[in-house]
């Protein structure tokens, strides 16, 4: 049994990601002979026993961090990061950074060296056209490195984004995918057994489902 724990700390809709994982798990079963079980939970024991962990997040960072701190989710994620594949999604990825400037400035978990910044109120495209915030919709992602999670995902595939803040990584070698919206933005981060996406793979149809399928088979290594 391939056990996946989706960490539930009360922030947002986790059913989409759970359903997408169940869907790709069912597709994989005939090939791998292994069933996938997805549990949405805040129970540290279940998360510790899982084979792989999803760290999601939606909404405002201050509320997310407040719940993360209240429920000791940081420790749970830190333990998972020591031992198994972890996929952080959207605000989950942002929460791994040092600091976010959202809500007047919020300290985050600091598990990855990076800062979360606002797009700005007068964001412009290449031709000077006005770009709205949030960055909402399908944007292409340029892969920056080979990674098991990119297997079968064509370079420059479009993924579904919805966010007003973006990540700037201190160490650009950890950036696994870039997108552009007025400026270059980090779309994915890869650091040993952790992979993080600013976009929502569970809402990104074929490209996103392929990435999730890869995650279910990933051993946490880079090859």
């Amino acid at each position: 049994m391939n056990n996946v724990a989706v960490i539930d700390y009360g922030m947002g809709n986790l059913h989409s990601v759970a359903k997408a994982l169940e869907h790709v798990g069912t597709q994989l079963q005939p090939k791998t002979g292994e069933a996938t079980e997805v549990v949405v939970t805040a129970d540290p024991a279940i998360i510790a026993a899982a084979d792989r962990v999803i760290f999601p997040g939606v909404g405002a960072i201050r509320d997310c961090m407040a719940e993360i701190n209240r429920l000791n989710v940081g420790e749970i994620v830190a333990d998972a990061m020591k031992a198994k594949p972890v996929l952080a999604i959207c605000v989950g990825m942002q929460a791994l950074m040092n600091h976010s400037e959202e809500n007047g400035g919020v300290d985050c978990l600091g598990f990855l060296q990076g800062r979360v910044k606002y797009f700005g109120d007068d964001l412009r495209g290449e031709l000077g056209e006005r770009l709205k915030v949030p960055h909402m919709g399908w944007n292409s992602v340029k892969q920056q490195a080979q990674h098991p999670l990119w297997r079968g995902v064509p370079d420059n595939s479009r993924f579904y984004f919805v966010h007003s803040y973006y990540v700037e990584m201190a160490d650009v070698s950890k950036v696994a995918g870039l997108s552009a919206y007025g400026k270059e933005i980090v779309a994915t981060v890869a650091d040993s057994n952790i992979f993080a996406t600013q976009f929502h793979p569970e809402k990104s149809q074929n490209a996103g489902l392929t990435l999730l399928r890869n995650f279910l088979q990933w051993d946490g290594g880079s090859g």
Partner: peptide
């Protein structure tokens, strides 16, 4: 490439 206009 840029953000795509959506058809819903």
């Amino acid at each position: 490439m840029a953000l795509a206009k959506r058809i819903i």
